[in-house]
Amino acid sequence: MKGSDTLVTLGLYFALMSLFAIGGGMSAVPEFQRLAVETKGWMTDREFTDLFAIAQVSPGPNILLVTLIGYHVAGFAGAAVTTAAICGPSCVFAYAVGRAWDRFKGARWAMIIQAGMGPVSIGLLAASGLIVARAAAQSWIAIVIIAVAAAVSYWTRLNPLWIFAVSAILGFAGLT
């Protein structure tokens, strides 16, 4: 457990990121990493990528990565704060906009905003991919796993659990 300062930082920062996660929660991964690893030094790059992988393997929305970050930094209180903060602002916003959506969907300005945000969200997601892949690329076998997992999930509809199972076994066998 850390002091309440840490909890306040977590709460404010993740609440802000709730509104900056354009196009989905994973868009904010670069900022989570920057805060947790580079600015605050709460964890190593490797630990961050471990948590990212655990969130992907767990059932449920991938955004639960923030729960793992919160827990790692400040225990149960940290987990509760980050989870509530990442959902709170965007949920309130979603509730308000959801009620009015029928009136403005298809409106010209809404389509222009969507068209502008789309490429930004893809750029953010690509940055997330770069950041976690760079930390995961610890050995040439790990690089091969990254490439094969990317290719398999791009070109086939194989259940991701298989990809995870095989790569965890390869890792466990000491190949990475």
Binding site: M26, T49, D50, F52, A53, I54, Q56, V57, I122, L125, A126, S128, G129, V132, A133, A135, A136, A137, Q138, S139, A142, I143, I145, I146, A147, V148, A149, A150, A151, V152, S153, Y154, P160, I163, F164, V166, S167, A168, I169, L170, G171, F172, A173, G174, L175, T176
Partner: peptide, 20 residues
């Protein structure tokens, strides 16, 4: 070691999502 394999797979899958 298992987590090293999982991390590699998870980041590969994110890259595939970006590509799609």
């Amino acid at each position: 070691r298992a987590l090293a394999g999982l991390s590699a797979a998870a980041s590969g899958m994110l890259i595939a999502t970006v590509a799609k």
